[in-house]
Amino acid sequence: MRRKFTVTINGIAYEVEVEELEEVPEGIPPSDEPSGLVPAVSKVSPQPPSPSEEALEEKVIISAPFPAQVLSIKKNLGDNVREGEVLLILEAMKMEIEISSPRDGIIDEILVEEGKRVELGDKLLTVK
C-alpha cells in the first residue's frame, strides 16, 4: 500500500510517498533500492551559502547582486574585517546597498573604484 507523508526536517517540509514492497526476511542484507522513499535527508545535508570551516583558508569573492554604481568603498587592502561588517556601498534604484563581509578575514583584493558602474555578477572584492 502506498502512503503519503509530510516529513519536516529542521523546519523544511518534504512531501514523500512510501510504498511497502515486501517484507525483508532477517539475515538478508538490505537492498540498494530506496523503496520509493524520497531521500529527503541527503537533500538537507549542509550546503552553506557562506563558506564552511574547511574553506577558511580560501578567498571569498564578493560580487554585485545586480547592476549598480559603487558609491563608496569602506575598507582598504589588508584591512581586517569581521563577519557582517560593511565593506562597500552600492547605489541602484535609489537604494543604498550595504555589502557586508560573509566571514571574518582580510581584504585581499579590491576590484572596483568608487563611482564605477558594475554589472550583475561583477567581482567587487575578495576576502581571505
Binding site: 503519503k4 507523508f5 509530510t6 516529513v7 526536517i9 535527508v41 545535508s45
Partner: peptide, 17 residues
C-alpha cells in the same frame, strides 16, 4: 534523528493520498 554528528528535528505527518 542523529546521522553521524548531525542532529535533525524530524516531524512525520501522514496526509491523505
Amino acid at each position: 534523528v542523529r546521522v553521524g554528528d548531525e542532529v535533525y528535528q524530524v516531524q512525520v505527518e501522514e496526509i491523505p493520498d
